[in-house]
Amino acid sequence: MTTYSSRKITQRTAFTFLTLATVITVVPVLFIIIYTIVKGGGALTWDFLVQFPSQAGKAGGILPAIIGTFYLMLGTLVFALPIGVLAGIYLTEYAKDNWLTRLINLAIINLAGVPSIVFGLFGLSVFVMAFHFGLSLLAASLTLACQALAMVITTSREALLSVPREYREGSLAIGVTRWQTVRHIVLPQAMPGIITGAVLAISRAAGETAPILIVGAAFLLPALPTSPLDQFMALPYHLYTVSAHVPNMPKETVWGVALVLLIVVLSFDILAAAIRIKTRMRK
């Protein structure tokens, strides 16, 4: 009897700690979101979303920063998605399992761990200077795409690997080529997972400040970018500047910018979750 009850106590203690750890994880996330809404909610007016900033961001709106961030996400997606998915397909479906493949996989995993400012510096010397793209949307999109690639490739590989081997065998066993099998059996099945990964990758790119700081983001611009070679404004960089470098900045405006950025990023995360749930229900 004693062992039984002591085991019960051990179990209860363990569960308590596990619950506590979960609560500790969730609380800061909720706190940040609620705090941002409380502090910045007042600044969130229609004018704030559709007007250009004035008086160094102290008045007016943040339209160019919102548009700039969407352009950046689009640019990142355009470069990272096709290259990432194709590389994922090659590594999963075609590459032989040898030391070179393992080295490449290791490199991709480590790519995700490279500090974003290093990507920024790389973008500055390669895209801005060597390729003569200048400080521009194009250079920034390419820089963020390099960073997003790691995540797109990794999630694409996971999505492709989760397609049962039986489907591939069934297809190959009736004389269908490897590429046809990938194209008509594996890819359709893996697509939701691939899209989810891509959405998460660009939502992360949307929040990056350090790399775009040195490859083309500007604090204040008189007009929206009209070509990929123009400079641009972006939400995270705008937030950084108004919170750190503009004196007498109304606090509510700063939190308002933060809230808009949070909404942009979270809405993409929710989109990714929705895709995942929808596919799970379909299966």
């Binding site: 069934g170 066993a173 004389g175």
Partner: peptide, 16 residues
């Protein structure tokens, strides 16, 4: 060759 020599597996594996 696999078109001429088809195969049925242990676990039924219809495509989705």
């Amino acid at each position: 060759l696999r078109k001429r020599v088809g195969m049925v597996f242990q676990k039924p594996n219809p495509f989705p």
